[in-house]
């Protein structure tokens, strides 16, 4: 796909205007189109976003676009609006990655870490990944989003709150309920 031009900008702007008026079909199409564009934009900013984080950052940008879609003015070009959001989200991701890198330490002998079966002779098997994926799938959207951002994407509560627009308290409650639901689904008590 080539770089977006004026006609793309107009098309995106028209779709967003329709979405602001409640046209869900237009909104779905816009988000699909933006996903492809954002993947390329984020991937091209290798200095800010690690390749492994590209999909996560694209999803954060889409969440942000959704949260502030009412700020788009149809009389103005769409792409500067989108790119301003994308730029801020990429900077957030870069700061987060730096923070995590500063906290983490690599080890030369991963065999002694807790995740190796040899170091956990008395631990019960955790269960298979498919069961976990299925249990995650069965969670309500709010709980699934909370557990995904906090536990899988390793966001802080503040970062997840910023990405979703939920309060820290609401995220804590959603995470607590999600863990309880997962435990019930996987262990059965």
């Amino acid at each position: 796909m080539t770089e977006p031009d004026r006609s793309d900008d107009r098309r995106f702007g028209d779709l967003m205007r329709a979405a602001q008026d409640g046209d869900q079909r237009a909104y779905g199409r816009l988000l699909q189109d933006l996903s492809a564009l954002l993947r390329r934009v984020v991937a091209a900013r290798g200095s800010l976003v690690r390749p492994a984080d590209v999909d996560d950052v694209v999803q954060e940008i889409l969440l942000s676009v959704h949260a502030v879609r009412h700020t788009y003015d149809p009389a103005r070009p769409f792409l500067p609006w989108l790119m301003a959001i994308a730029r801020h989200r990429m900077l957030d991701a870069s700061r987060r990655a730096r923070r995590i890198a500063a906290r983490e330490h690599s080890t030369d002998d991963p065999g002694v870490t807790f995740v190796e079966p040899a170091t956990n002779p008395f631990q019960e098997p955790v269960g298979d990944a498919e069961a976990l994926a299925s249990a995650l799938e069965s969670l309500p959207p709010g709980q699934r989003q909370a557990i995904t951002l906090l536990k899988l994407h390793d966001m802080s509560l503040q970062e997840a709150a910023a990405a979703t627009g939920l309060s820290v308290g609401a995220l804590k409650v959603a995470t607590h309920r999600a863990i309880a639901a997962l435990r019930k689904a996987l262990v059965g008590d």
Binding site: Y27, L62, L63, H66
Partner: peptide, 17 residues
């Protein structure tokens, strides 16, 4: 990603500009 887009689309009510 697809699930996220589906959820966002489903919750996209009209918004005052």
């Amino acid at each position: 990603h697809d699930r996220l887009i589906a959820e966002l689309t489903a919750s996209a009510a009209a918004v005052p500009r």
